[in-house]
Design a protein around this nucleic acid. Structure first.
Lengths: 219, 219
DNA sequence: CGCGAGCTTGATGCCGATCAATGCATGTGG
DNA sequence: CCACATGCATTGATCGGCATCAAGCTCGCG
């Protein structure tokens, strides 16, 4: 679990998260409606989360990579409210939520860290709302790519090249666009010299350009 | 604070929330960048929260009425990440966050309730993302109105008529639409007999119709 | 080698943005 | 009390970005 913690907590925390679980590419870690018992920390692999409305519509609400937490949505009603699907063969730590609450009553550091993580998820969602509510297609894609590379970079990967784990359609669903629009934007970025795109293989050749695009003020 | 709590906690909780604060219409309870110290529970009145990007764009991320909580965004970085602005003269309870964490280490019910509230906010945000990412203008407005009336109804107000506390522009910002589109959609709803609209005074005359609109599947 | 899932690219159309004018309510000063 | 200013809402006309429909392409895999 990606938290700052002090020495005496470590063994207890270790106990809590001994339980591991593997999820194959394409399979769900949990579905909307499933009973909520545990949070999950991604150890390896890559996930998407997805909500659906009664009619067929659905929306990708996030992509999660190593070190990120899944399942926070389930606390509110003791049932998960979204699906979490592995985009590649993955492994997670199972964190029984009642144990987490118990431990965090003992260790205020852990408690505070957990609250920060939930809050960060709320702040992230607000950022996505801003993106969905007020950016145009290319700005959305640029913001998405910069966010992805930043997170990958923080995990020791290159800050300038990446392999997409998700399809154009999934990117589109996340960004509120159709897959064709995503594809066209990729092509546009390539023409403009911001990216080299080979299917899911992306190299950023002009990060400043992308950044400028996102911050393109009141045009 | 709108939580289920057991008897022995009440006095302690009361102590925590004795501090009140009034906010006049148009004033901010807090701004993005302000140091975070407390959460706020709306006692009376009505708020909007709003995030801004570096360029001028901003996005309304929510509307809060009596009993709802403000400030959860601030936990993640010890600074608020959005503005909270009163849409009418309002009063809030100040809830010092460190005290809340302390108390919730003692009382697991309170702890769990608080976690549920944060999780509910995440689930709500996912719903808004679905709305912004995949609904068309009229569906968005219908969903918004149904959500508002449902929350008002839960507070003892009429389930079928309401007075909007926010402008068309604020509704539009929340729904990812321009104010003209919001206005046109109101007019359309009136023509179709779903609503009676007199400026900010709304009467729902065909709730089922609105509900059907939101659930209009894969058209 | 051929199939299928995913991706690209083109042509067309529609929804909602934009631009612009008018209407309506509230408030203010002469 | 009226004239006028101001903020918000409505409505019309036009435009543009993205969706939609459609065709071909790429690559991995049985």
């Amino acid at each position: 679990m990606p938290v700052g913690l002090s020495a005496d907590q470590l063994p207890r925390l270790d106990d809590m998260v001994t339980n591991r679980k593997s999820v194959k590419r394409g399979e769900a870690l949990f579905h909307a409606g499933d009973a909520f018992q545990s949070l999950f920390a991604v150890r390896t692999g890559f996930f998407k989360t997805r909500v659906s409305s009664e009619d067929g519509r659905d929306q990708v609400t996030g992509f999660q990579m190593a070190g990120e937490l899944l399942g926070l949505d389930g606390i509110s009603s003791d049932r998960h409210s979204c699906d979490a699907v592995a985009l590649e063969d993955s492994q997670v730590c199972v964190i029984p939520f009642s144990q987490l609450e118990e431990l965090s009553r003992e260790f205020s550091d852990l408690q505070h860290q957990f609250h920060k993580i939930m809050s960060r998820e709320i702040v992230r969602d607000h950022g996505v709302m801003l993106l969905l509510g007020s950016m145009r297609a290319e700005e959305r894609l640029a913001a998405f790519l910069l966010n992805l590379t930043q997170r990958l970079h923080a995990r020791g990967f290159s800050g300038s090249s990446l392999i997409l784990r998700m399809t154009r359609e999934e990117i589109g669903s996340y960004l509120g666009l159709k897959l064709e629009t995503v594809s066209r934007s990729f092509s546009k970025f390539q023409e403009e010299g911001y990216l080299e795109v080979k299917q899911r293989d992306i190299r950023i050749t002009n990060e400043e350009g992308l950044r400028a695009l996102v911050n393109a003020a009141r045009c």
